[in-house]
Design a protein around this nucleic acid. Structure first.
Lengths: 215, 215
DNA sequence: CGTTGACTTGAAGGTATTCAAGCTTTGTGG
DNA sequence: CCACAAAGCTTGAATACCTTCAAGTCAACG
C-alpha cells in the first residue's frame, strides 16, 4: 500500500509502446501505474492478487539471501507479463529498474484466468529452466553472450541492444560479480564481437560469433 | 533392500490395467507405465501431449549443451507431477533414474486442464526460480546442504534420506563436479552434520546446522 | 575372486572473486 | 555553465574456490 503510493510518480500521458500486446480478454484496458526507478512493485511475502504487464521501462524479479546476496531470476521488458510466480503470496521481489509503466490486472473473486495464465506460466517455467543451464554449466563469457543474445532477440533482433539495467543487475542475473561482467564486456569488445555505444547500449557486431559463444 | 539397488530389471512397457476410480481428478485412473533405470520418458523436441505422475521411483529432467555438459533442472519423486514444462514440444529430456512407474495423462482434443495444471506449473516455476538462487549465488557447501534439506522435506522430514540418484546426477543438478559433491559429503560427515548410511542413503544428524548452511 | 562401475581422495591448475585503485558518467548546487 | 560530489564502471593484483587430472578405494555381481 505504502510502497505503491510512494512509488507512483505523475506522468502526463500514456505512451503507446510498439511491443504492447493488445488486451487480455474482453475486459477494458487497465489504468497505467507508474513506478520510479528502484521502486518496489511487490515484495516477497506480500499477498498476490494480480498480474502485471510492462508498458514501458523494465522490471527485475529477484530474491535475497539472509546476508544480502541477490539473485535476479528474470528481467521483464516492455510488452512482457509477470507476477504470476506466486500462489497466494509472492515468493520474490519485483522492482522497477527505470521509470516504468505497468498495467495491473487484479483478480476479481471467482474469476478464472487459468486458461490465459497457463501459457504465460509455462513460458516463464521454460525460461527459468533454460537459465538454470546457464547458471549451472556455463562460464562467464558464455553467460554474458547468452544474455546479450537473449536481450537482442527480445528487442527484435536489432544490432543495437538497450541494456536498461546496471552491471550489478546483470551480475546478479548471471551469477557473476560486476567486475567479471565488466571484464567480459571488455574482452568481447577487444575481440570485435560487440561495440559499447554507451554504458547502457551495446552494438552487436558479430552476431554469429556471439551466438556460438553462448553455447 | 530398496527398489533403487535392484536397478536392471526388464519390465513390459505397458501392462494392461483395468481403470479404477481413484487418484487424480474425476477421470478414471490411467494405466501405469514402467521405465527401466536410465530409460527415456520423453526427449527434447518431442511433441508434448501429456503430463506425468510418478508412482514409484524417480525421474530427472535435464538439458544438454552441444559439448555434452548437462544441467538437471529437477528431480521428481513418488507422488510428484511433471511434463508440463512444454508448450507443444518438450524443451527438456525426462529419464527414469531407477526403475520407475509413471501414470501418463494424455490430453484429449478440446480438453481443458488449465485449472488443474496452473497450480502445478506455478509450483514448478517457483521451484525453478529458487534453484536459480542456489546456482547463481551459493557455494558448494550451501548447494549440497540446500539439496539435502530439500530432499529431506520431500521425503517427510525423516532423519534418513534416500538419494535415488548418483553423485553425477547430484553434481549436474547443483552445477558442481562429482568430485566436489563427494568432497562436500565428506566434509559434512567429518563435521558430524550427516552420516552416510550407504552411498545412496544419508542420515541427517544435525538438521539445524544443515539448515543454517543452506543459506 | 576378479572385474566393473561408482565413489573418494590428492595434487595441480584455472577461473572467478575479492580487494583496491583509478576512471567516467551523472547529477547537483553555485 | 562550471565545479564538485556521488555513483557506476573499469582495471589490476592477490586470493579463494572449484575443477581437472590422476590414482586409489569400495561395493556389487558374475
Amino acid at each position: 500500500m505504502n510502497a505503491y503510493t510512494t512509488a507512483r510518480i505523475s506522468l502526463p500521458s500514456q505512451p503507446a509502446h510498439p511491443n504492447r500486446q493488445v488486451g487480455f480478454g474482453p475486459a477494458p484496458v487497465q489504468p497505467l501505474s507508474f513506478f520510479a526507478a528502484g521502486s518496489e512493485i511487490y515484495a516477497q511475502g506480500e499477498k498476490a492478487g494480480a498480474f502485471y504487464q510492462v508498458e514501458f521501462g523494465a522490471v527485475r524479479i529477484y530474491r535475497l539471501l539472509a546476508d544480502g546476496r541477490r539473485q535476479i531470476s528474470a528481467f521483464h521488458l516492455a510488452g512482457e507479463t509477470f507476477g504470476f510466480e506466486a500462489g497466494t503470496t509472492h515468493h520474490f521481489f519485483a522492482e522497477a529498474i527505470n521509470t516504468t509503466g505497468v498495467r495491473v490486472f487484479r483478480f476479481a473473486a471467482g474469476m478464472d484466468l487459468s486458461g490465459q495464465l497457463l501459457p504465460l506460466a509455462l513460458k516463464g517455467l521454460t525460461r527459468a529452466q533454460e537459465h538454470l543451464l546457464v547458471l549451472g554449466r556455463q562460464n562467464a563469457i558464455e553467460r554474458v553472450a547468452a544474455f546479450l543474445v537473449d536481450m537482442a532477440e527480445r528487442q527484435g533482433g536489432l544490432r543495437q541492444v538497450e541494456l536498461p539495467m546496471s552491471r550489478m543487475d546483470i551480475g546478479d542475473y548471471l551469477g557473476l560479480t560486476i567486475e567479471t561482467v565488466s571484464r567480459v564486456f571488455t574482452k568481447l569488445k577487444e575481440k570485435g564481437v560487440i561495440r559499447l555505444v554507451s554504458l547502457r547500449c551495446v552494438e552487436i557486431v558479430r552476431q554469429d560469433v556471439l551466438r556460438d559463444m553462448s553455447e
